[in-house]
Design a binder for these strands. Structure first.
Lengths: 237, 237
DNA sequence: CGACGCTTTGAGGAGATTCAAGACACGTGG
DNA sequence: CCACGTGTCTTGAATCTCCTCAAAGCGTCG
């Protein structure tokens, strides 16, 4: 006789709402069935806690189910920069693939729930699904593409960077089924600045200027995009 | 009866001087034997000629045998930036892997000779060498690591960027067996600037300042590093 | 030898940083 | 529930780095 708990099916790769945005993208039904047996689910980190550390051995690919995180890199002088923000459904951990040592640190921006595909099981899984490495390769190269776009953007004036940042967060949330026009920025001005390569005061000035121009409404971290076209127009002719 | 030409063995992956720096890295002897049958060798491009175009379909992985190239990216406003320079033995083409469309343009900086592994043969080869995609994945993630380092560097003052650029070219040439202290910069000041995100005048000023400080000797494109430690000290505490 | 492109050098100005101080929000404990 | 303290955010003013514009020097290649 099923009790209340049993009535709620546990979440696996087969019924996860991330669906085609996560690792299973590109795999067939039977492969997804295999995958779910290999993945550690329901890992939790609270705000500020580390998902993995730069310098630690690569332990596998991480898929964020909920919450957001930041990906930090440090140079040898201790300068820190936020390489990327990670939103639900996005993958993490490629920075450990080439040398088996992570060269970035991943930290939760708010409580996160993530799945973890351990590195040794990646090989096991790939043995039966030969195209799996191909899929990972595509994902990895996709990250590369995004880095290239970031480099292009970092050449532009601060105002364009902030406009582009807001639009891109909006787009990414939209893909994941969230509202594209109203959402909470889970990162601080400081963190946005570290990501865009500008001072936090500059971020603040530009965001408030956008508000004065009635392009956005911002209250603390709560953001409402009033005129996406204008925002877009700041960096796209 | 062997004639003069036959006496000279054609260069294949098995006897190529790039050896373990190229695609064969990580493959066993028999796999390298297979690989040589799949690779198109001896492709030539002269200075300024295109190796592949942004927007064109992905046609495979390219390995530079000699000469150097630049990897360009364009944003939608037509702004151009040099994403990377490519030296002999380095691989090219990952920017086409994720979407099957190249999002960068590769152009020869001087006469180049390259090998080409067509995309359809990558799959054929991987069928017999299941770890091949794994190797490519590692290479690709390695590119990712380099992009991350580039992003960190682009936060630093212009002087540090130039110092770091010179050291890194030196290091890369050293790995390939060239002199690490004396070499020819195959790219213009303008191109260095585009790569580092600074104006070509700034590049020129900084390079000449390094010369005044007796850290380097520069005559047109010919460079001699006199004091690598000092150069290093500009960006590394 | 002349023309063109690349490099150098100088002067002025724009954009972003830094420093400093005050406003606001949030969580804690009284 | 309010007072308090800490951390985040905003705003202003001075400064600095680097860019832009301009012009001249140098090298190279037809």
């Amino acid at each position: 006789m099923p009790n209340a708990l049993a009535a709620k099916a546990p979440i696996t790769c087969e019924n996860c709402n991330l669906g085609k945005l996560c690792i299973p993208k590109g795999l067939n039904r039977s492969e997804v069935g295999d995958l779910k047996l290999l993945v550690n689910r329901n890992n939790i980190r609270k705000k500020g806690e580390v998902i993995y550390h730069a310098g630690s051995p690569f332990r596998g690919i991480v898929a964020l189910r909920s919450g957001s995180a930041k990906l930090l890199s440090f140079d040898s002088n201790g300068n820190e920069a936020i390489v990327d923000f990670v939103l639900p459904g996005e993958l993490l951990g490629f920075d450990g693939f080439s040398s088996d040592i992570h060269n970035c640190t991943a930290i939760a921006l708010e409580t996160v729930n993530f799945c973890h595909l351990p590195s040794q099981r990646i090989n096991a899984f790939a043995a039966n699904s030969p195209n799996f490495y191909q899929i990972l390769l595509q994902r990895s190269c996709n990250q590369f593409d995004r880095q290239v776009r970031k480099i292009m953007l970092n050449r532009r004036p601060a105002e364009e960077r902030v406009a582009s940042f807001l639009v891109h967060v909006s787009e990414r949330l939209k893909i994941r089924g969230y509202s594209e026009s109203e959402f909470r920025l889970s990162m601080s001005r400081e963190e946005i600045g570290s990501h865009l390569g500008i001072a936090h005061e500059t971020v603040s000035r530009i965001i408030n200027n956008f508000q004065a121009l009635e392009i956005i409404e911002i209250k603390a971290k709560q953001l409402k995009i009033l005129d996406k076209k204008k925002l877009f127009g700041f960096y796209e002719e």
